[in-house]
Design a protein around this nucleic acid. Structure first.
Lengths: 264, 264
DNA sequence: TATTATATTTCGAAA
DNA sequence: TTTCGAAGTATAATA
């Protein structure tokens, strides 16, 4: 988390169980202030408005507010949050006093709700979580200086071919990666043993029709760019293709080479 | 969460602060057993192996295990978890006794680590979180009978056009949705006032080159399917297009109509 | 089960 | 800032 190699704080977890809404509010505000990772579990309703809009009526859910501005609302199902906000938001927390008539006399009464609000601009988006009951509030602080090391990506597949071009086909010579065309950047641009231009599109996993369409766009664009009579080969490299994609490849005179990101 | 309308349990949150690894293990096991949503915060390393593979060295992170088999590892940054497992996994928890020499004499010693393991099949994937220190374990139970109501989707855009086809163009007549072609299903299939076939591709947001490629595939496929002399119009409907996509539309004789999912 | 396309996709890199 | 394509994408619908 906050990276302070020389002055690493001890990790800390502050927790309130069954707090009043006021106490929960204070704890959340303090957590946000301290740039902690704040979680709230309880009965809440959720409203979102922005690129789309949504309403979620009351239920018990787990909400996480991150110091980078991200917000996540999780039910007990699914890998994906039911509602969220990407990093860059401003988190706000307050108690709704239920002063519906505007008289102001309820200022010291028990609040009706604890409200978490996460605002974003560009695009303008608002996430509003209204808790009617809070079972737990926590604020977590710690350090995390390590980054994820991932392998088996498309980048690994590219490296594999650049280091051993014959994996694509005997005599293949890579000339450029990310070569620009009017239709976008080509993964690998090169030529075959006969000197013909070869456009290579890489995919780390089994591909469908979309990848064929992508390759086709690049081949079309290059043929126009290099002149009408240019003979450009298009090669899709992936572990495998679906039937429909295979048919599309054939229809458009494109080729396929089976290759995985790693050598296993 | 677990939907039991007539016998709704009270929501519950059981929390241990600064537990021993053994106590944490027991609490996690109990939470999984009870089909609760379990969270663990502490210092851990994470290994993943499956479609790809990854390693994440020690740091303070928040882990969530859901009763449907999903697992999430969150750092204090990003909307996305740094590691995860989709629903359908089998969660397992155990203490690593650090009995490296296999002598068995350390059976009652303090464990070296609390290990969370989430296994998936098809594809075979394994997520392994190893805690060397646990600051908090919680197990949450509750009820959640409400589903998200979302608007502003591509489906809304489709409904909008089906209810008022003139929004696309005067005299447009929708004939089918999801019409099958050799290249895939077309969003809306219809004909214009002159009786020409129209293929409509819908996007809820600003589109790039990929959407043009998609529309092109459908138009191509339908022209072949309906005979070589068939005159098929392709119309992309979205709030807006990027420059490159606009050029591609022109190159391939495709059209664009600006329309948002909702009438605002 | 495999395929296909959507998504409030998120994310990162490049122009 | 916008654009573009990758992602261990996840998710839902469909065959």
């Amino acid at each position: 988390m906050t990276s302070e190699p020389s002055t690493a704080r001890s990790p800390r977890a502050v927790t309130l169980e069954q707090p009043s809404l006021s106490a929960a509010c204070e704890a959340v505000a303090d957590g946000i202030e301290r740039e902690a990772l704040v979680t709230v579990f309880g009965r809440c309703s959720v409203d979102y408005e922005g690129r789309a809009s949504s309403v979620l009526e009351a239920g018990d859910r787990h909400v996480m507010l991150k110091p980078d501005g991200a917000a996540l609302v999780h039910t007990d199902e699914g890998q994906q949050p039911v509602n969220w906000q990407p990093p860059g938001c401003e988190h706000d927390v307050y108690c709704d006093d239920g002063d519906a008539d505007g008289s102001g006399v309820e200022a010291d009464a028990d609040p009706d709700a604890l409200v978490l609000e996460s605002l974003r601009s560009n695009p303008d988006e608002r996430l509003l979580v209204r808790f009617q009951r809070v079972l737990q509030v926590s604020a977590f602080s710690g350090t995390d200086e390590n980054e994820l090391a991932l392998s088996g990506t498309e980048e690994d597949l590219r490296q594999r071919i650049l280091e051993e071009p014959d994996l694509l086909e005997t005599g293949f010579t890579p000339l450029a990666t990310e070569r620009a065309t009017p239709a976008g950047a080509v993964d690998i641009y090169g030529e075959d043993s006969a000197g013909r231009t070869v456009v290579v599109e890489l995919k780390r996993r089994r591909v469908g029709p979309d990848a064929v369409g992508q390759l086709r766009r690049y081949v079309d664009a290059l043929e126009r760019d290099l002149h009408a009579d240019a003979d450009v080969r298009g090669v899709l490299v992936a572990p495998s293709v679906t039937d429909r994609a295979d048919r599309l490849l054939g229809d458009h005179g494109l080729e396929f080479v089976s290759l995985k990101p790693t050598g296993d």
